[in-house]
Amino acid sequence: MTDIGLAALAEDPAESRRRARIARARKAKLASLFKHVVLPVLTALAVLLLWEAAVDFNNIPKVILPAPSDIAERIWSIRNLLYANAISTTTEAVAGFAIATTLGIVLAASLVYSSWLRAALYPNIVFFQLIPKIALAPLFIVWLGIGAESRLTFAVFISFFPVVIATITGLTNVPGDMLRLCRGLTASNWQIFWAVRFPYALPHVFSGMKIAITFAIIGVVVGEFITANKGLGYLIMFASSMAETTTILAAIAVLCAIGLTLFGFVTLAEKLVLKAYGHKAA
């Protein structure tokens, strides 16, 4: 810092003002980094420490509330069990998300292009949105058994609606004059879809996908609760029956990590795609 100050003395005032501006901007950037990254992380750490201290201080039994250090230890000691179940949960959530996204976009496009289909289906889709779909989960076991099919189908079932609704909004959000221009050029619906409508819809599609990925995980975990055959949800149920609170929280911690990672991937894809398409990031 001091040598910058010395150099500024030797230079003309405009140059030193420029340097000062750059230094100020750098300082502002650091301050913003602290505020938006370091501060939330410190808060989380503080809560964990408080939790640890409260459990220690009050001698709370582990079956009621284990300390974070106990949970960390447990994660390490049962890492193989967690890993195997985490793989199952992650694979099914990702598969469910991928199917839901594909189906959702295809259905949204069909609804946008066919007024008959839209009239027949759209009100029903909105109506279906309102049903607490978790209540329907047991039906999937009746229909599809206790295997992966059941969990996957349920994950698709609950994560597909946000994609449909968001994509329809996006596809119909194209400026009217843009569509008039395309019609004026006698472009086909197929051309208009790929060249104009779909790229315009991307910010909406991604906001639907971000909801879908979290819903897909919820869907799989709920599926695991009731199919009781594998996955982190199953592990949680199993541990709960043995009053193994530490294992429950260990599984939940892993679920959080999976959720964050998958959401992070979708957000990253969103950033890259929206940047490539010149949209302002949502």
Binding site: P175, D177, M178, R180, L181, V196, P199, Y277, G278, H279
Partner: peptide, 10 residues
């Protein structure tokens, strides 16, 4: 048209 209606990504 009144607005340029250009594709923002092109």
């Amino acid at each position: 048209f009144q607005d340029a209606t250009l594709l923002p990504w092109k």
